[in-house]
Nucleic acid binder design. Structure first.
Length: 494
RNA sequence: CGGGGCGUAGCGCAGCCCGGUAGCGCACCUGCUUUGGGAGCAGGAUGUCGCAGGUUCGAAUCCUGCCGCCCCGACCA
């Protein structure tokens, strides 16, 4: 009998379900600092998978890794006007470099040493454009120095009012690519290329189908000329911006006076891009695939892909463990395998635990299985138990994992395509946003103010103008009555 | 930062209205029996009742302030 010990159902309360799934899967813990979470091994393991897969793709497209400082001189933030506006409100500052101990009423504590006050406060990076463009200024002289294709894996801090595990925390882990190019075309191509890398990665590794698009002016990155995005649809129909790639034009080159000398001897400002994804992707994976029993992970990102659970009475222990170890030996190195040989827990309890942790495939081995020369298998995605012969187990396990990966993508894709609603009138839109789950497709003709008005009335925002566009020839925007310019997707968003 | 809810053992909660020295379930420890879907019995350990003040002979309980978490907004990846 499958009881739901403590996991709220999605239908009852989607937010509570999300938090319960995370807690039962042991991905995160709270820290003493507001908005900052501890990534526990099972959660960090997912991030390590994401890092490895993405890093391979970055290298394959010609990028190299580097590391820039955590602290940025405060004056740097003010050099690009849009950038200041975007980030000023959420920056953490370092103002002193030393503490001193004080004693008040016999109690010893510490306070900033006034003598250690910094001449110029340091900002804890909310993103690294300013630091990196300062450095690029030193590195770029000639067109022969270009392009620069650098990525960094780092933590950043944005002092958010409201936080949510993985989706928005005060400190988070991410990668930020920063490239410098001689021409506008090359920079735009780079930004688009990285958007494609993200979309392919999301689809094939995370099994999260995404919609590629351009951000509206309002939703654009502070300092960008164009922001490209991949938007994913969560099971409650809300959109999750899962990665962004920015064409920065010459904004940062001008702010930091970075020019190169071309072949003819002229000086030109450098063209730039930046692109990033964060631990927010883990939230996307959780909300795309998990069910009311707990976490569901695609094999490609699962820290543990296969768990082997020995089942035995005392007299069978030896023969069972021998088979378990033999199977592990053949699978090890090809899959991420865990043997759960804890003796203080019965098999049933282990089944539930690993299901809550999202392990894609479970192999049970008891005396009966040993006799038959097989393991008894169960997929996290459902279906009955089935036998996996020890003979040729590697190929069978590979097939099953491939099948799970494909099944999750297919399921998510079906959900997405069947939850994009076409909008024909303002009334229908307002009702749909309230009653329907999903994205809302509009032949949009509004401006910034219209966008804000829609948000205020419905809470839905313009997520993106999809890259793949149908014609809007002759259409009128159902929300504003203005001539349609372009198809846009609206949705509630995280 | 505005509105609402909640902080009591690792987790989930009762006790608070009506003040009297803290309890239940799960988890944990020891032992025995168990082990194919959340084991049973016996014994045991675990708390500055979120923090700081105040009222009182006495505060988990009443009052004030603060902090944190969750939900709904505003802001944002």
């Amino acid at each position: 009998m499958a009881e739901h010990q403590g996991i709220t159902t999605r239908e009852d309360d989607y937010s509570a379900w999300y938090l319960d799934v995370i807690r039962h899967a042991d991905l995160l813990d709270d820290s003493p600092v507001r908005g900052c979470k501890v990534l526990k091994p099972h959660g960090y393991g997912i991030w390590e998978r994401i890092q490895r897969e993405l890093d391979d793709r970055f290298k394959a497209t010609g990028h190299v890794n580097a590391y820039f400082p955590l602290f940025i001189p405060m004056s740097f933030l003010s050099k690009e006007a849009q950038h200041v506006e975007g980030f000023a409100k959420e920056c953490a500052l370092v103002t002193h470099h030393r503490l001193r101990s004080i004693e008040v009423d016999g109690v010893t504590s510490v306070e900033p040493d006034p003598d250690s006050k910094l001449e110029e406060p340091l900002v804890v990076r909310p993103t690294s454009e300013t630091m990196i463009w300062h450095m690029y200024g030193r590195w770029i002289n000639s067109y022969r120095d270009l392009p620069i294709l650098i990525n960094q894996w780092a933590n950043v801090v944005r002092w958010e009012m409201k936080t949510r595990p993985f989706l928005r925390t005060a400190e988070f882990l991410w990668q930020e690519g920063h490239t410098a190019h001689a021409t506008e075309t090359e920079a735009v191509d780079e930004a688009l290329q990285m958007l494609d890398v993200y979309a392919e990665f999301a689809r094939n590794v995370l099994a999260v189908p995404v919609i590629k698009g351009r951000k509206s002016v309002r939703e654009r990155f502070a300092g960008a000329v164009e922001t490209y995005t991949i938007e994913a649809m969560m099971q409650n129909g809300w959109a999750l911006q899962s990665g962004t790639s920015h064409f920065l034009g010459q904004n940062f080159a001008k702010a930091f006076d970075v020019t190169y000398q071309d072949a003819d001897g002229g000086q030109t400002h450098v063209w730039a891009t930046s692109w990033g994804v964060s631990t927010r992707l883990i939230g996307a994976v959780i909300m795309t695939h998990s069910d009311d029993e707990g976490l569901v992970l695609p094999p490609a990102v699962a820290p543990i892909q296969v768990v082997i659970i020995p089942v035995y009475k005392a007299k069978d222990r030896e023969v069972v463990m021998e088979a378990v170890n033999a199977l592990n030996k053949s699978l090890r190195g090809k899959f991420r395998v865990k043997i759960d040989d804890r003796d203080n827990m019965r098999p049933g309890a282990k089944y539930f635990e690993w299901e809550q942790k999202g392990v894609p495939l479970r192999l049970e081995i008891g005396p009966r299985d040993v006799a038959k020369g097989q393991a008894f298998a169960k997929k996290r995605t459902g279906g009955g138990k089935f036998g996996v012969a020890f003979e040729g187990a590697v190929d069978q396990v590979q097939d099953v994992l491939d099948g799970i990966q494909a099944e999750l993508l297919e399921r998510a894709e079906l959900f997405q395509t069947t939850h994009i609603h076409d909008i024909s009138s303002r009334e229908q839109f307002v009702a749909a946003v309230k009653d329907e789950v999903g994205f809302f497709r509009v032949a949009w003709g509004g401006d910034d103010d219209d966008e804000v008005a829609v948000k205020n009335e419905t809470k839905a925002t313009l997520r993106c103008y999809p890259m793949v566009q149908d014609s809007v020839e002759g259409l009128t925007c159902p929300l504003t009555g203005k001539p349609a310019r372009e198809w846009a997707l609206f949705a509630r968003a995280y």
